[in-house]
């Protein structure tokens, strides 16, 4: 199976800081791939580099068989990548409806996807006319994911969706991500290893801006030492 997204040895600088020093990964189509690593390992920067928000200085990013390094972020996104950033970044001054509508790439996107979105997140239907700023943290997270589902995306980059959510909401969120992964490929970053380990099929581990391990998630779960060493998490 050809990879939907392939990242080959990218190096990204932020100011003078060499944040990514050789990250490589592959996301096969139709899977949930987890990007693991401690705080500050470079996970968020990897997602931003894929999207072109912090363009990598070296290395290749290949999406749908095309080299996309050096393109502008909007062009990359328009090829079919949805981004659900850390801290949600929904537009607080816009209503829920507008938050979804702004993501349309063609007229009617929202209409076509509305049913799918509302089955995933029934709450949003009730809140449809409310300004995004009045939503709770969990609702905002739902909205941010829903926003990425409005256009026909092939890949979602989801960054720390469980951050700051109550455990019960995390359960709900996991259900939603699992269901939407039937439609779209996911590259998931989350500190909550309990969650990622149950959702993801494969993983890539980064440390200090480098890919250090990768493989099937099932294999990783058999190696508690590795998990402790790289993530500080205990199963």
């Amino acid at each position: 199976m050809a990879a939907l997204l392939e990242v080959q040895d990218i190096h990204t600088f932020i100011g003078q800081f060499h944040i990514l020093q050789g990250v490589s990964l592959e996301v096969p189509e139709g899977s949930i791939t987890a990007l693991l690593g401690r705080n500050g390992a470079g996970k968020t920067t990897t997602l931003k580099s894929i999207l072109g928000l912090t363009p990598p200085r070296e290395g290749k990013v290949i999406f749908l068989g095309e080299e996309i390094g050096g393109r502008r972020a909007y062009e990359i996104a328009a090829m079919g990548i949805g981004y659900v950033p850390e801290y949600r970044a929904i537009f607080t001054g816009l209503t829920v409806e507008e938050n979804l509508r702004i993501a349309e790439r063609r007229k009617g996107d929202l209409k076509r996807k509305a049913d799918f979105i509302f089955t995933l997140f029934p709450d949003l239907k009730r809140l449809y006319r409310l300004p995004g700023g009045q939503l709770s943290g969990g609702q905002q997270q739902m909205l941010a994911i829903a926003r990425a589902l409005v256009p026909d995306n092939r890949l979602l980059l989801i960054d720390e969706p469980s951050e700051g959510l109550a455990p019960i909401l995390i359960q709900e969120l996991m259900g939603a991500i699992r269901r939407l992964s039937a439609e779209v490929t996911v590259l998931l970053v989350d500190q909550n290893f309990q969650m990622t380990s149950r959702l993801a099929d494969r993983y890539f581990m980064i440390e200090d801006g480098r890919t250090v391990r990768s493989g099937a998630m099932a294999d990783l779960l058999n190696e508690p030492d590795v998990i402790r060493r790289y993530l500080g998490a205990v199963i």
Binding site: A77, P85, I102
Partner: peptide
Amino acid sequence: QDSAMVEALGI
């Protein structure tokens, strides 16, 4: 509010 996010939506 957040022009980088708008760009990330493909605009």
